[in-house]
C-alpha cells in the first residue's frame, strides 16, 4: 500500500481528481459546480496523460548538448491541445449558464427542471 502510494501517487492523484470531478458533475445540483466538476475531471485526465510521459532520469524535451534521455514530448503537445479545448468548453458552458441564470434566476438544476415542467 505504501509502495503504491509512493510509486504510483500520480495515478492516485489523477483518479482522485477524476472521481471527485465526476461526483460533482453527477451529484451537485448547482450548474456552476457541475462545470467545475467537469473541469476537475478533465484535469485529472490531463494529469494522467502528462505524468505518463515521464521517463526516469529524462530531461525536458528541448534538444541540448550532452543529454541522452528526454521525456516524451508528445503527451505535452496533445494535452496542450486538450487544455485549449477544455478552456473553450468552459467558456461555452459559462456563457450558457449566464443565459440560464438570466432566464430562470437560479442555478439549481432541480429548480430549473421544476420550472420547465411547470410551464
Amino acid at each position: 500500500m505504501i509502495d503504491l502510494l509512493t510509486t504510483k501517487y500520480n495515478y492516485i492523484a489523477a483518479i482522485l481528481l477524476m472521481a471527485g470531478g465526476l461526483y460533482m458533475v453527477i451529484g451537485d445540483r448547482n450548474l456552476v459546480k457541475k462545470v467545475i466538476g467537469m473541469n476537475l475531471f478533465q484535469t485529472g485526465i490531463f494529469l494522467f496523460f502528462i505524468t505518463t510521459a515521464f521517463v526516469e532520469g529524462g530531461e525536458p524535451p528541448v534538444i541540448q548538448e550532452g543529454v541522452e534521455t528526454y521525456v516524451s514530448p508528445l503527451p505535452h503537445v496533445l494535452i496542450l491541445t486538450a487544455i485549449v479545448v477544455g478552456v473553450s468548453l468552459t467558456a461555452v458552458a459559462l456563457t450558457l449558464i449566464i443565459r440560464i441564470y438570466s432566464e430562470y434566476g437560479t442555478l439549481r438544476e432541480d429548480v430549473i427542471t421544476e420550472m420547465e415542467t411547470d410551464d
Binding site: 458533475v25 467537469m38 478533465q42 485526465i45 486538450a82 458552458a93 440560464i100 432566464e103
Partner: peptide, 20 residues
C-alpha cells in the same frame, strides 16, 4: 440553453473518456 448545457456536460464527459 439548459438542453445545450446538459449536452455540453455529458458530451464533454464522453469525449474525456475517449481521451482517457
Amino acid at each position: 440553453a439548459v438542453a445545450g448545457l446538459k449536452y455540453l456536460i455529458l458530451g464533454t464527459i464522453g469525449a474525456s473518456l475517449f481521451l482517457l
